[in-house]
Design a binder for these strands. Structure first.
Lengths: 364, 364
DNA sequence: CTGAAAGCGCTTACAG
DNA sequence: CTGAAAGCGCTTACAG
C-alpha cells in the first residue's frame, strides 16, 4: 500500500547476483532439505534483504501459495454482542485465544447482510466465506440450506454445536448434553425422585434431541419407569400454575427443563401457588445462565464449556485445513458438568396424591 | 480452499463468451463511467457468476493492484476481553455495527504475537497488517515506533484516540477530553469552588495532555488563579490520607482526577479520615466507569462515546481508503458529556484553613 | 547447487 | 463497447 515502490525479491536477486528463486528459498528457510545453497550465497542474500529493507508481499505469497492463511468466523448474530452475558460471547473468547496461540488472523464476516438485515453465508448463490481458507460458524438460528451449500461446495468449516445434515454429521465441537442430562437424572434419582418430568421447548434441533435422549437414557439407566409419558413440549404460553399442580398431584417430584428460560418460567408459576424448590419439588435446567459456574436463582444447571469449545473449534478447523492427515475424527464433544445449585433436594416422603396439603397452601 | 478448483474469472469469461476483462469490469461495477457494457452482456456474466458460484480471489485482487476490501482491526489487547465492562469493548461494538452497515468484513489481527507474548504490528520489519487495505488501531499501550513504521510505510490506519507523531497528528477518532475537562472545571466553579486540585497519573500521552490542558483552560476561563500550582502527578503509591488533609488545609475544595482509578483511590483515602464527598469536598473523574452513563460510587465522570467512536473510525478509514477526495479532515473529535453523579456539590462555606474542624473528625 | 520459466487470479492500460 | 496482453510479486516444479 505504500506509494514508494517496495523492494521485491527481484531487486534482492539482482543486488545479490542470484536468481529470484534462490531469494525465495533463502527467505523461506528452505535451505536445509534437498535444496542446498551455499553459506556465502545465503549471507549475500540476507545482507541485500536488510540493506533494501525488503518485506515479502503477502498477497503475492498467498496467490502463489494458494492459501490466505485466514480463518473465518461467521455468526448469525453480532460478533460483539451489546449485552453482557451473551450466550455466544465466551465461544468467541476461546476462538480468539486459540487463534492467537496458533498464530492465525481471524476474518469476521460482518459484511454479508441481506436485504432483511440478516447475515448470510450464501448470497446470490455465492459462498461469501470463500475469502477465508475455512470458517467457524456459530449461532442457533442457522439456515440449513446454507450449510448444505457449504458442504456441497466442499468449503471447510466447523460448527460450534453438534450439527448434522441428512444424518451426516458435520465437523463440529459440541457440549455433551446427552451425558449431562443422564447425570442430572441420575443425580435426582439418587435423591429419591422416581417421577421426573422433562419439559422441553418446541425447537427441534440437534441440541434439543441430545438433551431429550439423555433424559430418556438417564431414566432407563436409573430404572425409572415410563419416561416417555413424562415429556412435555411447551408452547408459547409456558407452563401454567395449573399444569404444575396437575403434574405434582400425579406424583411428579422433580423437573428437568430443557433450558433456563423454561426453568425460570416454571419457578415463577410455582411461586404463585406457592410451591418452592427444593422443599416441594426439585428442578434442574439443561442449559446455563451466562456466567460460567454461576447459577441463576440457585437452579441446578450445566456448565457449558463455551470458551473451551471455541478454542477446540479453532484447533479442529486448522487441522482440517493444514494437517488433514492428522485428523481422526471431525466431531469433538466436550464434557458439560452439572452445576449443583440449590434446587435439587430429596424427594418429599409424602407424595401429594389427589390434593395439595393445606400446610403448603398457607406456607410462606 | 474447496477441493474442486474454485471457478475463476477465466471460467466465467469462457462460459459467458466474453473476455476476462469484461468479467472484471462487471464484477467491480465499473460499468457506468467511461466504460459501457451492454445490459445483455452484463446479465450473461452475472448469470454465469451465480451459476458457477464464483467469488473473487482476494490475494489475486490485492496483488493486481486492487484492494482486498478488508478492514483490519488491531488491538494490543484481546479483541474479546474476558472481563465484562472492558474499556475497549464498546469501541468494537461500534466498529462491527458500522462495518456491517457499510458491508465490509473485518480482519482481526490475532496472529501476530511476538516472543514475549505481546501483539505486534511489525515483525522482522514486516508490516503484518498489509493483508488488509487499512486498519483501525486501538489500545492504550501502543508502540510509537510501530506507528512510525506504519506512517513511513504509508499504510492507511485510523487510531481510536488522539495520536500524533513528531507533532504530526495521525488519522484518529477521539473523545474531546479537553472540552470535557473545561466543562467539569466550569461546573465546579459554578458551585463556588475556587481551588480545584488536578490529580493525574504518570502516563504521558495525548489523552493525558488533553485532559490537563482542559483543566488549565477551564481554570483560566473561570478566572481561577494559579491552576499550575494545583496539579499533582501521582506515583504508584497513590494519594495518602495525609496528602488529602494537606491539600484541604491548603484550601482545596474540589478534585479532578485524570481517571476513575485515581478518583477511587482518593475516595478511599478520604473515607479513612473520614472526609466525604460532596459534603466535605467535591470530586470528578475525567474518565468513565465501563457502563455508559452509569457512575461508580456516584462519581461525576465522562460519558466517552465509545461505540460511536468505533463507528466513526470505520467511516474515516473507509473514506481514506476508498474516497480520499471526500475527506476534509482526518481528525475526528466527538463530544464527551459529563455524567453528573453525586459527588460534586457546593464548595463548603467554611474553608478548613490550618486544621480540620472537630465535627469532621467525629462525623460518621 | 543454481537459473529460466510457468503460473497463481486478477486489474488495467492499450488497441481495436 | 470488447479483446488481447502485460504485469502485480511470489512459489515451485523443471532443467541444467
Amino acid at each position: 500500500m505504500s506509494k514508494k515502490r517496495r523492494p521485491t525479491q527481484a531487486d534482492i536477486a539482482e543486488a545479490s547476483g542470484v536468481s529470484p528463486a534462490v531469494v525465495s528459498l533463502v527467505i523461506n528457510g528452505r535451505t536445509n532439505g534437498k535444496i542446498r545453497i551455499s553459506e556465502v550465497t545465503q549471507k549475500r542474500v540476507l545482507a541485500a534483504i536488510s540493506e533494501f529493507g525488503y518485506t515479502p508481499n503477502l498477497a503475492a505469497r498467498q496467490l502463489a501459495g494458494g492459501r490466505s492463511g485466514l480463518l473465518g468466523v461467521f455468526t448469525y448474530e453480532p460478533v460483539f454482542p451489546v449485552h453482557e452475558n451473551n450466550f455466544y460471547y465466551p465461544f468467541l473468547v476461546g476462538i480468539e485465544e486459540q487463534a492467537e496461540n496458533l498464530g492465525f488472523n481471524l476474518l469476521l464476516f460482518t459484511g454479508s447482510r441481506n436485504g432483511t438485515g440478516q447475515r448470510r453465508i450464501i448470497r446470490d448463490g455465492i459462498n461469501l466465506l470463500q475469502t477465508a481458507d475455512g470458517a467457524i460458524l456459530l449461532g442457533g438460528n442457522e439456515d440449513r440450506e446454507e450449510l448444505a451449500h457449504l458442504v456441497s461446495d466442499q468449503f471447510p468449516f466447523v460448527f460450534v454445536g453438534r450439527r448434522e445434515i441428512n444424518g451426516q454429521p458435520l465437523a463440529y465441537v459440541a457440549a455433551d448434553y446427552t451425558r449431562a442430562a443422564i447425570a442430572m437424572v441420575e443425580h435426582m434419582a439418587w435423591h429419591g425422585h422416581t417421577r421426573i418430568m422433562y419439559i422441553r421447548g418446541p425447537l427441534e434441533n440437534e441440541s434439543a434431541a441430545d438433551r431429550e435422549l439423555g433424559y430418556r437414557e438417564g431414566c432407563r439407566i436409573s430404572g425409572l419407569p415410563d419416561s416417555a409419558e413424562r415429556i412435555t413440549c411447551l408452547t408459547d404460553n409456558g407452563p401454567t400454575g395449573e399444569d404444575i399442580q396437575h403434574w405434582i398431584r400425579a406424583g411428579v417430584t422433580a423437573f428437568i427443563a430443557e433450558n433456563m428460560p423454561i426453568a425460570n418460567a416454571l419457578l415463577e408459576q410455582a411461586d404463585s401457588i406457592p410451591l418452592l424448590a427444593p422443599e416441594h419439588f426439585s428442578i434442574g435446567a439443561l442449559g446455563n445462565t451466562g456466567d460460567p459456574g454461576e447459577a441463576f436463582r440457585g437452579v441446578m444447571t450445566l456448565d457449558i464449556p463455551r470458551r473451551e469449545m471455541g478454542a477446540r473449534a479453532v484447533d479442529l478447523l486448522t487441522a482440517i485445513l493444514y494437517a488433514p492427515h492428522s485428523i481422526e475424527c471431525s466431531q469433538v464433544t466436550l464434557p458439560c458438568p452439572l452445576v449443583p445449585g440449590t434446587t435439587v433436594g430429596d424427594a418429599p416422603l409424602h407424595q401429594f396424591a389427589g390434593s395439595l396439603p393445606e400446610t403448603l397452601a398457607n406456607k410462606r
